[in-house]
Design a protein around this nucleic acid. Structure first.
Lengths: 316, 316
DNA sequence: TTGAAAGCGCTAACAA
DNA sequence: TTGTTAGCGCTTTCAA
């Protein structure tokens, strides 16, 4: 198999013009069946594959999408991104796209990378993770009409003034509130009466969402136990401290719902000896390893949905 | 800033030919300083960035390297790949390369992906992880003269017959034997006398390597305790079973060196109540979370070295 | 339904 | 030291 089959090679072998070969590839319905078959035979025999760079020069499309790989912070939640990336890569390939990685320190740096990636590589689109309030990335991408999807809902959606584009975009998210609500209900069903919550300070979209689920489940059970809730930064030590604090209360909780596996893992250290139940969030390997009950996110599915939304946007 | 600055736009503004602009970008020493400065000014003012696809058509180089993202198996070791990928992406960007992801089920499927990636995207090179004995991927890449580096040494190097290319290539690896040897020495220094090992069946390069370190340290201490070694598949449950088995021995070990954090985590379940020390391998977040002593790999450094080797190969 | 011409943006080879 | 010519492989436009 000669390594260098071009569209001209194929055309010569199939006794047609280069254009007809191109049509078989891009608009098969324009080509008479007999001709098409002859060309497809030639393509197969020569092991021909369209050169993406040449195609890109004409079409301006690279069939490349980019996603940021974050530094693993405490590492426990790192595997979440890992699983997401894997799903993304697999689904993208099935849709004819390839995934390019980039890193960035902050939103500003990330926007600089967009400029570079768009100008030099003509990236077709972006998948954004870790969306947050006042996310300048989405505004920039929208303003520059760059196709993108976020994994994470838009936390502060603006309606858009008159004649102004609303700052909206396709997104995929996991219902965190539903997760913590289910976890809380489960604990209630197990007979727990005082159920505490350890989460992040108000203002982080994801954290607020997860707290809301716990509140909802307890409100339905006729409780509003604000005094059983603690805010803290994410981390194992922080989770332990918050749990220790809650366990010293007079009416101390018999179960704890946590906003992350990191927090839960810390909480578990304090809670397990006291016979207090703990649930985490993300169902990370760490949780599985220590036998922690945790809310699982359908990451592969979320990734697939991201690709589908982006692909639709790119096709339309 | 007009979005569509090309080399011609820059040339016009700086009153030179397109070729001279190209020279400033690729061979600055050929251009008189005064001219160069004028051109650089124009580039800055116009926000010009070379179009990679056009460049690629002439040079045949994409400035893209590919790496496989593996499905997180039991997930514990998943974060290892994650950290490696992050390092790779960061160093590659610094060297002017971008990282493209792909997935594959097995060596055969991976080779198919090479063909696709090379033909369509003209990938410049590959970074291979998880090398093993009888690795068909390296042979294929070498035969097709595709630049690549492996993270993991070549486990069965052939010398190459007369007139035959030796199957050698640049590689980066972490000295696993040194890691387990250090762990074993540490345990000896702590006063442990009977130190067991839980690893993988002979034949996996990485596993054999790690066992060798344990043996080496004990041999120096005048012991050859083969009866304290166990082979098993990787996994938490497997580690627990192997540990339980070792602990029933007459002269049962007072410490266990494990080939992975998964094994160590399982072993810990059995060993901790018995007061037996355990060390793992990879220093994963799981290990840190449960307070497991573990051998840490300098992954970011290994990734950087992979990029440097590959970049050198691509430049040469 | 098929073919011919033109050109995307860049750089290698050569000429001035 | 700078400029000119040509062409990488493909698809869009238009003609046959």
């Amino acid at each position: 198999m000669a390594d260098k089959a071009t569209i001209a090679t194929v055309a010569r072998r199939a006794q047609v013009s280069r254009q007809t070969v191109s049509n078989v590839l891009n608009s098969p319905h324009l080509v008479r069946q007999e001709t098409r078959e002859r060309i497809l035979e030639a393509i197969g025999a020569l092991g021909y594959r369209a050169n993406q760079a040449a195609r890109q020069m004409r079409t301006g499309r690279s069939r490349l999408v980019a996603v940021r790989i974050e530094p693993t912070r405490d590492g426990i939640n790192g595997s979440v991104l890992d699983r997401f990336l894997h799903g993304l890569t697999e689904t993208a390939a099935a849709s004819g796209y390839r995934v390019v990685l980039y890193t960035a320190q902050d939103d500003g740096g990330e926007i600089g990378t967009y400029e570079e990636l768009l100008a030099a590589y003509q990236l077709d689109g972006f998948v954004l993770t870790s969306t947050h309030h006042q996310d300048t990335r989405t505004a920039w991408l929208a303003a520059h009409r760059v196709p993108f999807v976020t994994f994470g809902r838009p936390w502060d959606r603006r309606s858009g003034g008159p004649g102004e584009e609303p700052d909206s975009h396709p997104w995929v998210d996991v219902d965190g509130a539903a997760g913590t609500e289910a976890a809380t209900r489960y604990l209630l069903a197990m007979g727990h009466v005082r159920i505490g919550f350890i989460g992040w300070p108000a203002g982080s979209g994801v954290g607020d969402d997860r707290r809301a689920g716990w509140q909802r489940a307890l409100a339905e059970a006729g409780q509003v136990p604000h005094y059983l809730s603690r805010d803290t930064a994410d981390g194992v030590a922080e989770g332990a401290a918050a749990a220790a604090d809650l366990l010293t209360l007079a009416g101390s909780p018999t179960a704890l719902v946590c906003a992350s596996d990191s927090l839960a893992l810390g909480a578990l250290r304090e809670a397990r000896p006291a016979g207090v139940a703990v649930t985490g969030f993300d169902d990370t390997p760490v949780a599985a390893a220590v036998g922690l009950t945790s809310v699982s996110q359908p990451l592969a599915q979320a990734a697939a949905e991201c690709v589908h939304l982006l692909a639709r946007r790119l096709a339309g």
